[in-house]
Simulated scan of single mutants.
Amino acid sequence: MIRAIAAATVFGALVAGATLYSKGPPEWWTKTLFGSLDRRAEPAIAPEAWPICTTMPSLASDADWAQLDPDFKAGKKALAAADWKGAIAALELAALHDPDNADIQNYIGYAYRRQRQLGPAIGHYQQALILNPRHRSAHEHLGEAYLVLGEPAKAEQLVGALETLCLIPCEEVDDLKRAIAAYGKLAAR
């Protein structure tokens, strides 16, 4: 009987501790120990940050996103129709709703690059990488933009970064390597 009570007490303490741990420390405790430091501002680790490289799409498909944000849906449709200005306009609105979304920044960068506006394109790719340093498509697209600018060394650096991110062969590495090889053939002429 005493063992059952002790086990129930330990189990209850573990459950209570797990609940408190998941909610974070109370605000008064954080301020008392760390001054005005706000621990809630720390970003959570997103699934994209996991050290796994695969060509499998993220858990939330684009169709799910489109249902949640009509601006994202309109931007994706505009990208598919090669309406780069329309895509930029719609995706900029989607970025206002979700400013921490690296995918949206990557898509905006792609639309700018297709318009040959490399400055804004590179800026959006870099923003995507600030939001998610492991964003493989942003690495690939930024490398391709550097090739357009005639900077193959920077593109090669991004191949190295992608190879570090990808534990198994991934499409982005292969695509960027093919683009660098094509650039090399054109430059050799």
Results as ranks from 00 to 15, higher is better:
24 G>Q: 07
24 G>I: 06
26 P>K: 04
28 W>I: 13
28 W>Y: 11
28 W>S: 15
29 W>I: 14
30 T>E: 15
31 K>M: 04
33 L>K: 15
34 F>S: 05
34 F>L: 14
35 G>N: 09
35 G>K: 12
39 R>Y: 12
39 R>S: 10
39 R>F: 14
39 R>V: 08
40 R>M: 04
40 R>Q: 13
41 A>D: 13
41 A>E: 15
44 A>Y: 08
48 E>L: 06
48 E>W: 06
49 A>T: 12
49 A>K: 10
50 W>S: 08
51 P>A: 12
51 P>H: 11
51 P>C: 07
52 I>K: 11
53 C>Q: 04
54 T>H: 01
54 T>W: 00
56 M>Q: 13
56 M>Y: 06
56 M>W: 09
56 M>I: 14
59 L>G: 10
59 L>N: 07
60 A>P: 03
60 A>W: 03
62 D>P: 04
62 D>C: 01
65 W>I: 03
66 A>I: 00
67 Q>N: 07
68 L>E: 12
69 D>G: 01
69 D>I: 00
70 P>K: 15
73 K>T: 02
75 G>A: 06
75 G>Q: 02
76 K>S: 05
77 K>T: 11
77 K>M: 05
78 A>C: 07
78 A>Q: 09
79 L>D: 10
80 A>S: 12
81 A>T: 06
82 A>G: 01
83 D>Q: 09
83 D>S: 09
84 W>V: 02
84 W>E: 03
